[in-house]
């Protein structure tokens, strides 16, 4: 794992740059598509998700290999979906729609990162999004050179959004 001092292992971006890049990508995606302001919490935060949650993920493979995960509670996922589709959260009945919306948000954040990596010589391809749903599981990366865990607090919601990124670049 890379340290938090900004001396990450990739020549493309150190951990501080990765953190800043992801913060901008996440705030852009939530601001534009979900019409919701999200604020990055301090890296020492202990905020976490309780109960049923959804994790949207996209992977990328090539000269850079890794994945982006977006963790949200099921209730907040409905709220996001409603905001994206112009509906109230309780009008969102279909779980497939919720999964699709969370998947699309992951795709946009992952696509942003993938494009940045490709522009810096680490060409790779993006996977289609997938969704993991449950209440008692952990995601761990094997062999990741860099990883980041960012916790965002969305406005008007009593929860957090957790974004995790793992990647390894060809040197």
């Amino acid at each position: 794992m890379a340290d938090e001092s900004g001396n990450g292992k990739s020549s493309v971006m150190n951990n501080t740059q990765l953190r800043n890049f992801l913060t901008k990508a996440v705030t852009d995606v939530f601001g534009t598509m979900v019409s919701m302001k999200v604020e990055l919490l301090d890296s020492n935060t202990t905020a976490n998700l309780e109960g049923e949650r959804l994790v949207g993920s996209v992977g990328f493979a090539g000269r850079a290999t890794g994945a982006v995960y977006i963790h949200v509670t099921e209730a907040f996922a409905r709220q996001m979906t409603g905001a994206m589709l112009g509906m109230k959260p309780d009008e969102v009945k279909n779980m497939a729609d919720v999964q699709d919306a969370v998947g699309e948000v992951s795709n946009m954040i992952g696509g942003n990162l993938k494009s940045h990596l490709a522009d810096n010589g680490l060409s790779c391809v993006l996977s289609i999004p997938s969704i993991t749903r449950g209440s008692d599981f952990r995601i761990e990366a094997v062999g990741a050179a860099q990883q980041q865990r960012l916790v965002f607090c969305p406005q008007q919601a009593d929860t957090v959004v957790i974004v995790e990124v793992y990647f390894k670049a060809d040197q």
Binding site: D28, V29, G31, T32, M33, N107, M108, G110, G111, N112, K114, S115, H116, A118, D119, S123, L126
Partner: peptide
């Protein structure tokens, strides 16, 4: 597309698209 990388944009531009929009939009 969510992929706004230069290489990607150049590739699709050469294929005759009228324009492209990067997600989020």
């Amino acid at each position: 597309t969510a992929e706004s990388g230069r290489e990607n944009v150049l590739k699709i531009a050469k294929m005759g698209i009228r324009d492209y929009i990067v997600k989020p939009f």
